[in-house]
């Protein structure tokens, strides 16, 4: 029996996933003046839906997680160089006054055209499905780096140089990796886009006709059900695609295939968590109470070896076990 066991139920993982989805949102906007034209963007999005499932084959499946865009706006403005005509004077002989022509300028504004803003939020939505496992691997710092080209090392060096991940340790570690198996990304989630458009249009129409009351609420509920049905029907081909991917453990479609390859590479090279071996349970301490003279003694840290660490997933829970070395 393991010395330490920690288990998390599928129910708890689902609750945590729902909290995560409900609280992940992003917004960013910027604009720039590039001389003859100005450009800007304003994006705002959040996650919706999705489900997480623990499975008996040791994998975790995140299914149909929607990326919704509240704003996906790009703006463009043109600054045409100013053109001015007139403004000159004709000198006339005395006593006739000089004749001056009025100056007329066009394209004086900046930008002259626009900015024209287009919001694609209503027409764009993505859906992501993902299957992966969690692996605990041992990093032995005493082993020499394998000779030859090492793509993992290359990626790690880039990420370390940019302070994205911690440097390669000089001591042994347990490293936790996410090992992706299949990824399904729908760049344009047509069932959701069509469903949302229909639902929004019908809701706006009904709200205009019936401002309030239970009759309106009832009709809106029926509309929501119809929109869901449309989403379900339109999503059937994608469901089949995901089912086949899951069945054969390979991503169909060039984008999914490439994404899986890239994530697999990242997953195998970049750990999501690290646990030092031996693991420090009491830090080094400057003590003045060990010697009668009161002199400071730096006591070494207390660390315990972790000879084994495993993470297993079954259809009801995720279980991590660890042993303490003798």
């Amino acid at each position: 029996m393991a010395h330490l066991t920690v288990a998390v139920s599928e129910g708890a993982i689902k609750k945590a996933f729902e909290v995560l989805v409900a609280n992940i949102a992003w917004e960013k906007q910027d604009s720039g003046d590039f001389g003859p034209f100005t450009a800007g963007y304003h994006i705002k999005g959040h996650l919706e839906g999705g489900d997480v499932d623990l499975r008996n084959d040791g994998t975790i499946r995140v299914k149909e997680l929607d990326i919704k865009w509240d704003k996906l706006e790009v703006s463009l403005g043109l600054d045409i160089p100013e053109i001015c005509v007139g403004g000159g004077c004709i000198n006339m002989p005395w006593p006739i006054p000089d004749i001056c022509l009025p100056e007329v300028c066009v394209f004086s504004d900046d930008p002259d055209i626009g900015p024209i803003a287009l919001d694609f939020a209503a027409f764009v939505a993505q859906e992501v499905s993902f299957t992966g496992s969690i692996d605990a691997r041992y990093f032995n710092a005493s082993l020499p780096v394998p000779p030859g080209f090492n793509p993992c090392q290359l990626l790690q060096d880039v990420l370390i140089d940019n302070s994205i991940i911690e440097p390669v340790p000089d001591h042994n570690q347990w490293q936790i990796f996410i090992n992706p198996q299949t990824v399904d990304i729908d760049l344009f989630d047509f069932p959701d886009i069509v469903g949302d458009l229909i639902e929004d249009a019908l809701t706006a129409a009904i709200t205009a006709i019936i401002p309030g009351g239970w009759v309106r609420d009832l009709i809106l509920a029926i509309i929501g059900g119809i929109a869901d049905l449309i989403r379900f029907v339109l999503d059937i081909p994608d469901e089949i695609d995901e089912w086949l991917s899951d069945l054969f453990n390979i991503s169909f479609g060039l984008l999914d295939f490439l994404t899986t390859l890239v994530l697999d590479f990242f997953g195998n090279c970049v750990p999501i968590a690290r646990i030092d071996d031996p693991f420090e349970i009491m830090p080094a301490e400057d003590s003045t109470s060990v010697l009668l003279s009161g002199a400071t003694v730096t006591l070494v840290p207390v660390a315990i070896p972790i000879p084994s660490l495993t993470i297993n997933v079954n259809d009801v829970e995720m279980v991590a076990t660890a042993d303490v070395g003798g």
Partner: peptide, 13 residues
């Protein structure tokens, strides 16, 4: 299962 009756479970031998 360890989590038959709770969401999380921890045990120390």
């Amino acid at each position: 299962p360890f989590t038959d009756h709770s969401d999380l479970y921890g045990a120390v031998h």
